[in-house]
Nucleic acid binder design. Structure first.
Length: 229
DNA sequence: GCCCAGGGGGCTC
DNA sequence: GAGCCCCATGGG
């Protein structure tokens, strides 16, 4: 079997098992795209439960629009998003995105997502506070674009399965999924959410062995027992 | 009380 | 381009 075929089979099998084990994750199923983008920025390096409190505060304060985010002082915004950590930095990031959206797309996400996906990704990466994972989360979860999102859990899980992405960069992991899977936004959405579900449960950095992991027989079992991360 | 968890920016060499 | 530090909270 060719390497490509073996990779493809493995990635499909992982998806199949995660779905069978955890079921559908219902990530951002019917949210407003702008709210999804705000969530994607706020969830950087923090848990979703912390983000939910912050989003709720923003909603109550009527701040879930680009114009409102531009108007509020960064300090006041930081207070409202206190629960999700790095609040001063994230307040600046939210305002930077709102500013950019106004200038480039007249606050229209519809106009923004009408852009060519790869070109839009490059543009998003130029916005302060938006790196590769956040840009891809925006494209997939707010724009419904078939872009695979890579996070620390994804890297760790792939590493443990022994699949070789051909490098350690974000793009290596992303290309691994995208060259092997059909460009299906709904599936990419579900797959990433399932990897996070597994990561939160067993594939922690310092958890050497996934005794209860549904992928345990296809992970490098012995190497984890020795404490490799 | 302490250790751990998730992304991105900015600086240095 | 790699390595390092900073940004701060919440959960176990």
């Amino acid at each position: 079997m060719s390497r490509l075929t073996a990779e493809k089979q493995s990635l499909l099998e992982i998806y199949r098992r995660l779905f069978a084990h955890f079921g559908p994750q219902h990530w951002w199923p019917a949210e407003e795209p702008f709210e999804v983008i705000v969530g994607a920025i706020l969830t950087q390096s923090t848990t979703w439960t912390s983000v939910e409190k912050a989003i709720s505060n923003l909603k109550k304060a009527g701040l879930l629009s680009p114009a409102a985010l531009r108007s509020i002082p960064a300090g006041k915004l930081a207070e409202l998003i206190h629960s999700c950590g790095y609040f001063n930095a994230k307040a600046v990031k939210l305002k930077a995105f709102a500013e950019w959206l106004g200038v480039q797309y007249h606050d229209s996400l519809q106009e923004m997502f009408a852009r060519d996906t790869l070109e839009l990704r490059d543009e998003l990466l130029q916005v302060h506070g938006i790196g590769e994972e956040t840009a891809d989360s925006i494209l997939l979860y707010a724009g419904n674009k078939p872009v695979f999102v890579i996070d620390a859990y994804t890297r760790r899980i792939i590493e443990r399965t022994g699949i070789n992405p051909g490098g350690q960069k974000y793009r290596h992991y992303q290309e691994l999924f995208m060259r092997n899977l059909p460009p299906d936004a709904a599936m990419f959405n579900e797959y990433h959410a399932l990897l996070v579900a597994l990561g939160k449960n067993v594939c922690r950095k310092r958890n050497p062995l996934c005794d209860h992991c549904c992928l345990r027989d296809i992970c490098g079992y012995a190497s984890f027992k020795r404490g490799r991360t």
